[in-house]
Write a protein that binds this DNA or RNA. Structure first.
Lengths: 324, 324
DNA sequence: TACAATAAGCTAAACGTTTCGTTCTAACCT
DNA sequence: AGGTTAGAACGAAACGTTTAGCTTATTGTA
């Protein structure tokens, strides 16, 4: 591996000049050419470690997700990465596979490898632990907040999303609407349930607790809980499902029972753009602003990396109902 | 941030001794305690950059995937990461979102940040480009091979997987079997098609080209191509779909048309364990050995990092048909 | 023509580790 | 008691950059 010294020797210039050029500084045209030539000739690459040691920057943003196989997070990260890349930063992704132990470990890893910022979708961790692990590195929470932890966060407005979905169904004269919601230790899943209750309150429609089914965000629970709803002595006339995988499960269950969506049971899915659009007729779904979440997360990260000292902001982005 | 020097000062020991201890060396019990105490007191953490600069190792494995939202790759990576973690290595994931430009860029990034090895699911890149980007870093290909590129690779035996799936259907007297297969620039998708043709040859059953539908591995194409098969003047009596998302699409299409799987049209899915198991009756599917692929990839990586100089190996792992 | 102002390049010190070769200490043997 | 040896600790150099402070060359202006 050749170093900056080799380039200096080859070109007859000093280390400082080479370094200056590499970092975007101005050098004489003639020297620029010489340096370029030497770089290609010797196949020089800057040493990441040496640079990091001096600058204390890695130009790298760590991303920690509950799982690596989620279309939702995949989309958010893609949007974010695109934006960061434009500014010379790169994303590095880790997942903890829903394991609370690993959640902390991976966080420690990111800190250890000196990422300049951390974008984090938390699950179990509490404010205190997070504080103790991460110091001096800006953290941006995505999709979920952590109670009592002060930092930037970008979330979708789950409460209003469900609220409008319900309103749409109320307008169509439904008053018994099934809800398949996620684990209640996830802040946004809680919010979705709150939205469900609040809209009932506001419209003076009683909530039948039987209609609230708590799943764990996977396909199987969507399938099982949709069936559970239909097996009630008094089944709902409409069902709203609140994430990607459970939407697949619920639609499959409906199809199997020969229930025509949305004619026999009205239906609103969540996040699963592909599936909801592909079925005939297309089904309405709540679409969280994935690209916007990614872009905003990137914006905040860049702002912090630029030394921004504003108080932490909680950004609540609007979800939208695909169509009614 | 405190450094090893602070620990030395605090304990009265020399840099060398602290470093030795940090790297697992033996020191007097009394000193060990002093060092430990100083470390917690000063909240010392080794500087990743400085260590890397000296050792030329990052203890980090870069993983590059076509997309970050795939249950298949997610599972493979999880298995791999678990194994690597046991040996003190960590995985760092990037994706190129099916973008050939980004595929190269991300590869360069991984090289630049000095990962010790690269695990790579390639799509478009050719041997020459890859060679020019990655030098002196062991590469392990996963799921797909690259023509003319000599390196370790771990793939599932797609050819035989499809072969056995077809045999199972032949045994049930099907002779017109639809195939929904992936893009033919992906090596394993090619193999799956070859397996389809070969088994027909071997069984002396003619191939009707109409029955071969080439999709692009997403939900929509599974849906559309299943419908295309059913719309043939002479539709197949069984259908085999060859990845996760297209399996969702195909099952949905079948359900919508009121086709009972597997009674009216026999069916074999791929990879989508959740969905195929949840439907009633459960549908057979080809299950690629995701965990094994991950573990084997890790094993090879570790072997290379340990200086292993064996010739590159192409590991072809057996897929299995869930049940008949 | 002389002088300031600007641009370009240089020297050398630092960043925080690891590691080689050396020195010190104490235990063991004959 | 003298000599040997193993174990522990040490001193110092090196890894490949960046950057502050300085020198030299060039240009424009009075």
């Amino acid at each position: 591996m050749s170093t900056i010294k080799d380039i200096a020797r080859e070109t007859g210039l000093s280390l400082a000049t080479i370094s200056k050029y590499l970092n975007g500084g101005h050098v004489l045209d003639q020297n620029r050419e010489r340096i370029e030539a030497a770089i290609t000739k010797l196949d020089y690459k800057v040493n990441y470690f040496a640079r990091g040691l001096k600058t204390n920057r890695s130009m790298t943003v760590g991303v920690l997700l509950p799982t690596i196989s989620s279309p939702f997070f995949g989309r958010v990260v893609a949007a974010m990465d695109g934006r960061l890349r434009q500014c010379g930063y790169h994303s590095i992704v880790c997942s903890y596979d829903f394991d609370p132990q690993l959640e902390q470990e991976q966080l420690r890893l990111l800190v250890n490898i000196n990422v300049d910022a951390i974008v984090f979708v938390p699950q179990q961790i509490d404010a205190e632990t997070l504080t103790s692990i991460v110091q001096n590195v800006p953290v941006v929470l995505v999709d979920r907040a952590i109670p009592d932890y002060r930092c930037d966060a970008v979330v979708a407005d789950s409460l209003n999303a469900i609220y409008s979905a319900m309103e749409a169904l109320f307008r169509k004269q439904h008053s018994r609407i099934g809800l398949i919601v996620g684990p209640q230790d996830i802040s946004t899943a809680r919010e979705r349930l709150i939205g469900y209750r609040r809209v009932h309150e506001d419209y003076h429609i009683p909530v039948d607790e039987e209609l609230i089914q708590v799943g764990n965000y996977d396909l199987e629970s969507g399938y099982r809980l949709f069936n559970a709803l239909m097996d009630l002595t008094q089944p709902p006339s409409a069902v709203c499902v609140t994430n990607y995988d459970m939407t697949v499960g619920a639609i499959t269950a409906a199809h199997e029972r020969g229930i025509a969506l949305p004619e026999q049971v009205d239906f609103i899915g969540f996040d699963n753009i592909d599936l909801c659009q592909v079925v005939t007729p297309p089904l309405p779904f709540v679409e969280q602003p994935m690209d916007e979440m990614g872009r905003e997360a990137a914006r905040i990260v860049l702002q912090r990396l630029d030394g921004g000292k504003e108080p932490p902001q909680l950004l609540r982005l609007k979800s939208k109902l695909s169509h009614v």
